[in-house]
């Protein structure tokens, strides 16, 4: 049965829209860059574009599109595996929240568990399950739809955003803000600061694996700091 516009509007979580919009802006140049790379890649165009609705993971897509045809297929797959490894940590961190959700959502929800949606939805983990689900789905639909539009736009109009704007920095600024809002106690602050230092020290590692090393050491440091008195 078709839903009325009013019913559809009631499914949209306004908090999710408000929180997502600033994070959608930095995705614009990234989506454009991806579109340009798809056009320059050795991969057939529609296969390249299809990665946005099948894989839906900007960094892994970019690596795959760039490497496709220039190295062995196994190398491309292993590179994507390393880049996506951080999602395993997202998945583990979200597991307790998803445990309160129906099975269909536990199966479908992870398809859109990208960096931005992880960061946004983690701030909603204590909400009632239905509110969390509506928030997560609204974010997911917004980011997924936007990503498809950006990919196509990037293929055809990718060179329109001037590099001099430096919008590549925008995601880092947003994520810095989200880290600050998460760092509410000593273990979390120690985890974040340690992750920053270790990631800086391991930047030279291939395939962005310094990111994983930094994150894992940060989690361990936060865990050890959690044993002290007064840590919430």
């Amino acid at each position: 049965m078709a839903r009325s516009p009013g019913e559809i509007a009631s499914l949209i979580d306004r908090d999710a829209v408000r929180d997502s919009l600033p994070l959608l802006v930095p995705a614009v140049p990234f989506g454009f860059v991806l579109g340009v790379e798809i056009n320059d890649s050795l991969m057939p165009l529609l296969f390249g574009i299809s990665t946005s609705w099948t894989i839906f993971a900007g960094a892994a897509q970019l690596a795959m599109i760039t490497l496709a045809g220039t190295v062995s297929a196994i190398t491309v797959v292993l590179t994507a595996l390393v880049i996506n490894a951080r999602h395993v940590m997202y998945s583990a961190a979200m597991a307790p929240t998803f445990a309160k959700q129906p099975r269909w959502f536990r199966v479908l929800g992870p398809t859109v568990l990208i960096d931005q949606i992880f960061a946004l939805s983690l701030t909603q983990a204590e909400q009632p399950p239905e509110k969390f689900r509506r928030y997560y789905i609204t974010c997911g639909v917004l980011f997924f739809t936007m990503w498809q539009i950006l990919t196509i736009a990037g293929v055809f109009f990718g060179s329109a955003v001037p590099e001099s704007w430096g919008l590549g920095l925008a995601p880092a600024l947003m994520f810095a803000g989200i880290v600050v809002s998460m760092a509410v106690n000593r273990p979390a602050i120690i985890a974040a600061v340690t992750a920053v230092i270790v990631t800086l020290l391991t930047l030279g590692l291939p395939n962005r694996s310094g990111l994983l090393v930094g994150a894992l050491v940060g989690v361990a440091a936060g865990y050890l700091a959690d044993r002290g008195p007064g840590d919430g």
């Binding site: 690596a63 940590m89 880290v179 974040a192 990631t199 030279g204």
Partner: peptide
């Protein structure tokens, strides 16, 4: 569960550094 509480701040802080330093390109 205690370790998982720190995944968010640690991973996102590491991502901030990765985004800024852009290790896939010449600027490291």
């Amino acid at each position: 569960t205690r370790a998982l509480r720190n995944v968010g701040p640690a991973v996102l802080a590491a991502l901030v550094v990765t985004f800024v330093a852009n290790p896939d390109e010449a600027n490291q």
